[in-house]
Design a protein around this nucleic acid. Structure first.
Length: 566
RNA sequence: GGGCUGAUAGCUCAGUCGGUAGAGCUGCGGACUUUUAAUCCGUAGGUCGCGGGUUCAAGUCCCGCUCGGCCCA
């Protein structure tokens, strides 16, 4: 037997002491002519079937009794002594002397190795060089432990990759949030529920593709490096191309390129891709995020309202199919309902409702009158500066008290027109209360709500409503108070679009940071004729958050942006 | 940018009124052929985030900074 690894604990930090022990074990393997970082893996060893853990379990499924145990005689009868070969990471290691229990994990599951001196012979001694976290391969027959746990009884174990660092604490896993984000590789190993969310994310994206592909959409890829800023209202990242000596922006949205493709006759296109916005970081915002946008010719936003419900339910159904157990857990905890028809409310009506809910007496005459409620009416009822009224208004009701009047007024005063004012009123009077105001049939869960018919001033790429030209045919979907989708019938009149761009440029000149550039080429494209179409955008990160109950966007982005490690 | 809050062993966490730095897991040595966070005995492991200050004495009190988290903008 080799000597114990010698480590001088005084010479190095405790961290080094831990890795040095493992390096010493790797060295002993090398002395035995074994490679602690083996590369000669083969899909099958002599006489053994190489299987994933889930496949091995499937082979023994008939031996499983009602209590989930595997009687040893039944396991042996089911597998006839055939040899299985598996690979995975050691995630638990218990030894009782001549018998050791290892737990191995691969991407499909976990299985116990029941390692006995009897079956392993002299090779049993080499268990000394195995540590938690090592990646090994093993072959042996299927058996059952005394407690009825399905196990592989190995005749051979071989190191494939020596782990020089130990895994985090076995019971609590890795808890430190900062380390979890910075060292996601450890997080994924130590916290299986984290890995589960990212598996869900993959299924969600896959389901989204499937639903659009089935509708004969074409998946395309458009530039993420762009000479102009467009497609959304946000601050971009600046960059530069050296060879062309050309300033560039990271795209904030793929919209204008996708619509060029609609001009080009592709008619139904979508892209699932990274977008970049140079803005704050929060539980709902990461500077880079993944957006789905699709454009559908010969339909209007009204069609997309219907399709959005179908799509979200369809994605959720695919997720349930792929991960039934996790899905049951997530869906039972959801504070919102997606199984019944979503609410629909025009923005102006939402504001009218929001004002009514404040129970502010000054609005009662106005709200009682049987008249429409458009952007101009909204301005009229609130006046130009309601600062002096705030104190009184806030006392009217609990709802009125909950309104952020100070910031509402600040935003209100900055508005240039009635449309922007309507939007501001919506933002402060309605949006924070959507979760309370729209409830599912059970009266508990919130109901997703489509807020429809936005003021045209806040939507520079959307088509005006034919009967109310101060509105655009647009909706946003809010699920439990969080914005998930944004969609509208596309503006395809090049002259109207050019005027909207000019307005954006005027705003930029006046100091606004979040504006679009005038995109001459896009206007030229529209001049060739874009069919009537409706377009849709959805944050895939937020969709994943919603379906997996993740409280922060960092829980659904593998490597969220953090400050440099010091 | 503002408010609140956190950083102590590789990991998870204690640390009282300011008075010698603690536990569990991991590691190492030993016992053990049916474990399930195995158990038992022994043992090692610390720039208490960084920098100042107060004090006879600071993980603890004060100030500044760094990196996080939550909320707000």
């Amino acid at each position: 037997m080799a000597e114990a690894p010698s480590v001088d604990p005084k010479a190095k930090t405790a961290e080094h002491a831990l890795t040095d022990v493992r390096r010493a074990k790797a060295a002993r393997l090398r002395e035995r002519n074994e490679n602690p970082f083996a590369n000669d893996v083969v899909p099958r060893t002599l006489g053994a079937r190489t299987l994933d853990v889930a496949e091995v379990r499937a082979c023994a499924a008939v031996a499983r009794d009602d209590a989930g145990k595997y009687p040893d005689d039944k396991v042996k009868a089911a597998t006839g002594g055939q040899t299985f070969h598996i690979r995975g990471r050691i995630i638990a290691f218990r030894s009782t002397g001549g018998l050791s229990f290892l737990r191995l994990r691969d991407r499909t599951g976990e299985i116990q190795l029941l390692v006995s001196e009897a079956a392993m012979g002299p090779g049993y001694a080499s268990l000394e060089d195995l540590d938690l976290g090592d990646i090994i391969e093993s072959e042996g027959t299927l058996a059952s432990s005394k407690r009825g746990e399905l196990s592989i009884e190995p005749s051979r174990i071989r190191m494939l990759t020596k782990a020089l660092r130990p895994p985090p604490e076995k019971w609590h896993g890795l808890q430190d949030v900062e380390t979890r984000y910075r060292q996601r590789y450890v997080d994924l190993v130590a916290n299986p529920l984290v890995a589960e969310v990212f598996r869900a994310r993959s299924y969600i994206v896959r389901a989204t593709r499937k639903i659009l592909d089935d509708k004969d959409f074409l998946e395309v890829e458009t530039p993420t490096l762009t000479p102009l800023v467009g497609g959304a209202v946000a601050r971009p990242f600046d960059t530069h191309h050296n060879a062309l000596d050309m300033p560039l922006f990271m795209r904030i949205a793929p919209e204008l390129y996708l619509k060029r493709l609609v001009v080009g006759g592709l008619e139904r296109v979508y892209e699932i891709g990274r977008c970049y916005r140079n803005e704050g970081i929060s539980t709902r915002h990461n500077p880079e995020f993944t957006m789905l946008e699709y454009y559908w010719s010969y339909v209007t936003y009204k069609h997309l309202v219907e399709f959005t419900e179908v799509m979200i339910r369809g994605i959720d159904a695919e997720l349930r199919k792929a991960m039934p157990e996790a899905h049951a857990r997530w869906s039972s905890e959801r504070p919102f309902a997606i199984d019944e028809a979503f609410a629909r409310v025009p923005m102006a009506q939402a504001v009218r409702k929001g004002l009514a809910a404040t129970e502010i007496a000054a609005f009662s005459d106005f709200l009682g009158a049987d008249r429409g409620f458009d952007a101009a009416a909204c301005s009229q009822v609130l006046g130009t500066d309601f600062g002096e009224h705030i104190k009184g208004w806030a006392k009217s009701s609990p709802r009125a008290k909950a309104i952020d009047w100070g910031n509402f007024r600040k935003g209100w005063m900055k508005c240039d027109n009635d449309g922007e004012r309507l939007f501001a009123a919506y933002e402060y009077l309605c949006e924070p209360f959507l979760t309370d105001d729209y409830k599912a049939a059970d009266g508990k869960r919130s109901l997703p709500v489509f807020v429809m018919d936005y003021p045209f001033e806040t939507s520079p790429l959307a088509r005006r409503n034919d009967t109310s030209p101060d509105r655009v045919d647009r909706f946003e979907l809010f699920v439990h108070g969080r914005e998930l989708c944004n969609a509208f019938s596309e503006l395809n009149d090049p002259d109207d679009q050019a005027e909207r761009f000019r307005e954006q440029v005027r705003k930029k000149a006046a100091g606004a940071e979040e504006t679009m550039d005038f995109d001459e080429d896009y206007i030229r494209a529209l001049e060739y004729g874009m069919p009537p179409a409706a377009g849709f955008g959805m944050g895939m990160d937020r969709l994943t958050m919603m379906l997996t109950n993740a409280p922060s966007i960092r829980d659904v982005i593998l490597f969220p942006l953090l400050r440099a490690e010091t």
